[in-house]
Simulated assay, not measured.
Amino acid sequence: MEFLRCVHGGDAGVSTFLYFPFAVFNIASPILSLLYGITGFKIDKLPTAPGPAAEAL
């Protein structure tokens, strides 16, 4: 499977531990998504105020 060779850090001569600090958000994203899904946390939309700015949308 040649297409899988691009995902290995060893092929580029980079240790996994060297690029681990740059992958923090990649690791945290699924964890936070599960946490938000379980707890029901969400960001509510603000109500729009009537006026010329709301009509422009």
Rank of each mutant, 00 (worst) to 15 (best):
1 M>C: 14
1 M>I: 10
1 M>E: 12
2 E>Y: 10
2 E>A: 14
2 E>H: 09
3 F>A: 12
3 F>I: 12
4 L>E: 11
4 L>Y: 14
4 L>H: 09
4 L>K: 10
4 L>W: 13
5 R>L: 14
5 R>I: 14
6 C>F: 13
6 C>W: 08
7 V>Q: 06
7 V>E: 07
8 H>Y: 13
9 G>V: 06
10 G>Q: 05
10 G>I: 04
11 D>W: 05
11 D>H: 14
12 A>N: 11
12 A>C: 12
13 G>C: 04
13 G>T: 03
13 G>K: 02
14 V>T: 13
14 V>N: 04
14 V>F: 07
14 V>R: 08
14 V>Y: 04
14 V>P: 04
14 V>E: 07
15 S>L: 15
16 T>Q: 06
16 T>E: 12
17 F>L: 15
17 F>I: 11
17 F>S: 14
17 F>Y: 12
17 F>W: 15
17 F>R: 05
17 F>A: 13
18 L>R: 12
18 L>N: 11
19 Y>E: 08
19 Y>A: 07
19 Y>Q: 08
19 Y>V: 13
20 F>Q: 12
21 P>K: 01
21 P>Y: 00
21 P>D: 02
21 P>M: 00
22 F>W: 06
22 F>A: 14
22 F>R: 07
23 A>V: 10
23 A>R: 13
23 A>K: 12
24 V>I: 15
24 V>E: 04
25 F>C: 07
25 F>P: 03
25 F>Y: 10
25 F>R: 08
26 N>Q: 09
26 N>C: 08
27 I>F: 14
27 I>H: 09
28 A>Y: 06
28 A>T: 11
28 A>Q: 05
29 S>P: 00
29 S>D: 13
29 S>M: 14
30 P>K: 00
30 P>A: 00
30 P>I: 02
31 I>E: 02
31 I>M: 07
31 I>N: 02
31 I>S: 01
32 L>P: 00
32 L>E: 06
32 L>C: 08
32 L>M: 11
32 L>V: 11
32 L>W: 05
33 S>K: 06
34 L>D: 05
34 L>W: 07
34 L>I: 08
36 Y>D: 08
36 Y>H: 10
37 G>W: 00
37 G>H: 01
38 I>A: 06
38 I>P: 00
38 I>L: 10
39 T>V: 09
40 G>P: 04
40 G>Q: 04
40 G>A: 03
40 G>I: 01
41 F>D: 02
42 K>E: 10
42 K>V: 05
43 I>M: 09
43 I>D: 05
44 D>W: 03
44 D>T: 11
45 K>D: 09
45 K>Q: 11
46 L>H: 04
46 L>R: 07
46 L>T: 06
47 P>D: 02
47 P>T: 01
47 P>M: 00
47 P>V: 01
47 P>A: 00
48 T>A: 08
49 A>R: 10
50 P>D: 05
50 P>Y: 01
51 G>I: 04
51 G>Q: 04
52 P>H: 00
52 P>F: 00
52 P>D: 01
52 P>M: 00
53 A>Q: 09
53 A>T: 11
54 A>G: 03
54 A>P: 05
54 A>Y: 03
55 E>L: 07
55 E>T: 10
56 A>V: 07
56 A>Q: 09
56 A>L: 08
56 A>K: 09
56 A>M: 07
